[in-house]
């Protein structure tokens, strides 16, 4: 293998790194040996599988859109303003990142559930969230939002405020600065953050199971379908798992392509 290494990295680090990479990849490769290839297409095109895949894509896209709408202002506020308790707010916003999803589900129930704090309000407007596709999107947004905020905030800090300051001294109004300077500057980070959020939403399981329930075409997303199929049809579960892995590979590939930092920013930080 031809690995160019800087003289500061000892050889054993590379050995352990290879072990680490194999550790991650090996189980996924091993899974492909369990796939019932002759029936693969039949397994992944069953009505319940297709319904689950379409629902997963639909809800994850909606959750990603919600993440962008809510996450961009949040990241801007965290990176570009200073206020008391800012560090605490940042820590709390990132909390879903480290919480077990089932706890997210319990928390969402307490807020938006039928007997939750806001449940009565929603009922009043004739909106019921429990057991609806909306509940799935809420659960996915809840767990995916930190990915977008984290990605954007670090990009904003890297980019610095010089260009924004210059634009402002030239008479640009804050919204113009945001539209013409800040957003284009962080656009690659916005893209990769959105792709990561999409991936996280796609994989959401625990919060959905706890908060939204599980009904074909309504709330049973692909991970829930896989978990259920495992009970009676392990072959279908493996086949669907592979589909999700392929989607994940695609997503990661996209992120790597979009996460190249613009040269403008790179120069600013060197």
């Amino acid at each position: 293998m031809d690995i160019r290494r800087s003289s500061t990295i000892p050889r054993w680090v590379i050995v352990v790194a290879v072990v680490g990479a194999v550790f991650v990849l090996f189980p996924l490769v091993a899974m492909t040996t369990r796939v019932d290839w002759p029936n693969f297409l039949v397994l992944i095109t069953s009505p319940s599988s297709v319904a689950a895949l379409l629902l997963s894509l639909r809800t994850s896209l909606a959750a990603t859109a919600a993440c962008v709408v809510l996450g961009v202002p949040l990241a801007l506020m965290l990176a570009r303003t200073e206020f008391r308790g800012q560090r605490l707010v940042r820590a709390l916003v990132l909390l879903p990142l480290v919480l077990p999803p089932v706890i997210g589900g319990i928390a969402l129930l307490a807020a938006f559930g039928r007997r939750g704090l806001l449940g009565q309000t929603f009922d009043f407007f004739g909106v019921t969230i429990a057991f609806s596709t909306t509940a799935v999107v809420i659960a996915q947004t809840f767990v995916a939002l930190p990915f977008l905020v984290l990605s954007l905030e670090s990009s904003l800090r890297l980019a610095g405020t010089r260009y924004e300051a210059v634009a402002a001294t030239l008479g640009a109004r804050p919204t113009t600065v945001l539209r013409r300077i800040t957003l284009p500057l962080i656009f690659p980070a916005l893209l990769s953050g959105a792709v990561l959020s999409f991936a996280r939403a796609l994989g959401e399981f625990g919060a959905t199971l706890t908060f939204a329930g599980s009904l074909q075409g309504v709330t049973r997303t692909l991970p829930l379908e896989i978990y259920l199929q495992r009970e009676t049809d392990p072959d279908a579960a493996v086949a669907l798992s592979l589909v999700l892995v392929l989607v994940a590979v695609l997503v990661v590939g996209l992120t790597l392509r979009t996460s190249t930092v613009p040269s403008l920013v790179r120069r600013g930080t060197s």
């Binding site: 559930g113 007997r115 329930g213 599980s214 978990y227 259920l228």
Partner: peptide, 21 residues
Amino acid sequence: APVSEESAVTDVLGKVSSGEA
């Protein structure tokens, strides 16, 4: 015509005890 078909009996119980169902 259930609103949800759970994968474990404990999940059914959870939906009832929380008042969602």
